[in-house]
Structures are given as structure tokens and as C-alpha cells.
Amino acid sequence: MLYFLKRDLILQKKLLWLYVPFILIFVFTWSSPFLIFTVAALYIPYNALAYDEQVNSDKLLNSLPYTRLEITLYRYLGTLVYTAVSILLVSMILMLFDKPFTVYDIGIGVSFFLLIASFTYPLFQIFKQGNITTIIIVAFVLSIGLLSTLSEYLDDFSNAIANSAIDQSLLFTVLILSVLIIYFISWFITYSIYRTKDF
């Protein structure tokens, strides 16, 4: 596990300097705070995927003492770690600039990101190497576009939840749990494909 985190950070040591400015752009151009959480969470894991695509990294990873289960699992767990980091970072920035946000913004924003990841990670296993950068860019543009159009409704939705009479924390928990279950299923699909792959 440590190897994978370390590797991502060493690989991205230059790009990490751009992480905060990257977040700031969205803080000042977008009104919906939950979207900022989504975009910020995308940064490290998707950059890592783009790097892996440049070289035959599966050949390296699978020649090192790792099992295929570990390789796929660490990718998914690592993504969760980076998501936690992004939540902290964005929260700090938002507070620093006095932008209001709620715990629901975090929940919905991160859930969104995890759904995107759940959908795209198995796709990377199906498509050939060389297409991954394209997939990342397309997925990124599509999800940003989708999110922008949906953002109004979602804002309403999160407001509605905030103002409704249903037990908010229960609803929130159900949402987070279902997203995590989908995320786990996504890992299982990824692993099933990866397990029998030839490198």
C-alpha cells in the first residue's frame, strides 16, 4: 500500500504544486461548493492513471512482489486516501476565503466523484493502453459538463434535503453507504478483468 501512495506522490511531485492553484480556480469560478469537492478529488488519482499509461506500468507492478488483487485494491483504497486529503484541503481553502459550505456539499461532491471513479476504473481495464489518456479527458470533460448542468438541480436537491422533514443524517448515511457499495462492486469488476489479463 505504502508503495502505491509513495509512487503516486513521487511521480506527481511537480504536479502537486499546481494542486492548490487548481482548486482555487474552481473556488473562484464556481458557485456550487460540492462541485469543487468533486473536481479536487479527481486530481491525484486521474493524474496517476495518466502517468501509468505512459509506460508499461502493469508489467512493472506485476513483476514486483504484488498480487493482482493487491494492485487493484490499492488503486481503489489509494483513491479513498486522496479523496480524504482533497476534502481537508478544499475545506481549509473554503474556510480561508470565507466561502460557506455544508457537510452535505462534501457528501454529495465526494459521492459524485466516487461514482465517476466507479464507472471509469473498470473501463480502463477494458480499453487498450494508449486510449487511457483519451478516456480520462473525455470522462473529465463529460462529467464536468454533466455536473454543471446538473448542479442547479443538485443544489436544489441538497437544499431540499437540508430543509426537508426526513431524517437528514439517515438519508445522508444511506447515500454514502450506497456509493461505497457501488465503489466496492466497481473494484470487484476491475479485479475480475485484471485477474486474467496478459501483460
Binding site: L11, Y51, Q54, V55, N56, S57, K59, L60, S63
Partner: peptide, 9 residues
């Protein structure tokens, strides 16, 4: 291996 498996940068 004969192909490049280590990250170029």
C-alpha cells in the same frame, strides 16, 4: 526487460 517499464521522468 527490453522495453521501458520505469517511469521516464
Amino acid at each position: 526487460y527490453d522495453d521501458n517499464i520505469y517511469y521516464e521522468g
